[in-house]
Simulated assay, not measured.
Amino acid sequence: MKTAIITGAGSGIGLATAKMLHAEGLAIVGVGRDTAKLAALEQELGGTERLLTISVDVTADDAPQAIVQGALERFGRIDHLVNNAGVGSPKPLHETDDATLDGFIDIMLRAPFRLCRDVVVHMAPGSSIVNVTSTFAMIGGRRGGAYSAAKGGLKSLSEHMACEYGPQGIRTNNVAPGVTMTDMVRHRFEDEGFKRANVETTPYPRLAEPEDVASVIAFLCLPGSEMINGQSIVVDGGWTKTKYLSPRAMTSVWTSAE
């Protein structure tokens, strides 16, 4: 029985991915900090026959060892790794202190790097790693700061791994979500400026839901994606690839930013 490790599995994209891969018959190692959310994951998947939950801070020094050891002891193999855990609400470079910088780098670059390092040695041909990056790893964006730096580093790490471990039959890819309606993001739509900057510039009639991103991650863990390696698949309704402005934005009265 193939096994997938998913970080940040208690909510949002991670939860949706766990449900999809579980439905495909995989065993799931769901990693997260919130024990209540992990308990809810167990309920969502109907028990723990093909599920192991591990409550750990992925930035902890012993986290990779605990995750890998748990997966191997319970299921005897690791076939897929989805590095999804992350944080949001970044600030511009000039407003970012060292503690914030370290926090973003720790959870979204250092932690995935260390977990990849400990997992890849246990993978066999046909295995895959999916790192969840961001549109901010693909293009410049305002307020990116430490978030952009971490996600950009993760994108480059994936490309290195695709080259290094691809000959062993181990694929590594990125999935880069745009603004996705997770609990971490939903509250930001109270800010009319944030809402307009995303809704009015997306050439699709809605923004992404967690399931939209999870379906791409799940695909990259299934046999039909065997020739996809070293790629970044962007899930954003065309936001990064177009200069779209909605009719509302095109006909609005422009005012000074002052």
Rank of each mutant, 00 (worst) to 15 (best):
P223L: 08
E226G: 08
N229I: 10
A214Y: 07
M227V: 13
L245D: 07
L222K: 05
V213Y: 11
W239L: 15
L222I: 02
Y244V: 10
S232F: 01
F219S: 09
S215Q: 14
L222F: 03
D236R: 00
S225G: 00
A218Y: 12
G237T: 09
K241S: 15
I228H: 00
K243A: 14
L222T: 13
T242P: 00
G237H: 02
W239S: 12
Q231P: 02
E226V: 13
G230S: 09
G230M: 07
F219L: 13
M227N: 12
I233W: 10
S215M: 12
V235H: 05
K243S: 15
S232C: 15
G230L: 11
F219Q: 02
E211M: 08
L245I: 06
L222W: 02
V235Y: 05
V234I: 14
S215Y: 02
S232W: 02
W239P: 04
S232V: 14
D212Q: 11
S246G: 05
E211C: 08
P223N: 09
P210F: 00
C221M: 14
I217Q: 06
G224M: 10
T240S: 09
N229E: 06
F219C: 01
A214P: 11
A214C: 10
V235I: 12
S215A: 12
L220N: 01
G237L: 05
S232M: 09
V216Y: 00
E226F: 08
Q231G: 01
P223W: 07
P210T: 01
K241E: 13
L220G: 04
L222M: 15
I217M: 07
T242V: 06
V235E: 03
V213E: 12
E226R: 15
G238S: 11
G238M: 10
V234R: 02
A218C: 15
E211P: 08
S215N: 11
T242R: 04
E226T: 13
P210H: 00
G224Y: 14
Q231S: 10
I228V: 15
T240F: 03
L245F: 11
G224P: 07
D236M: 02
S225M: 01
V235W: 02
A218G: 14
E211Y: 05
S225P: 01
S246K: 04
F219M: 13
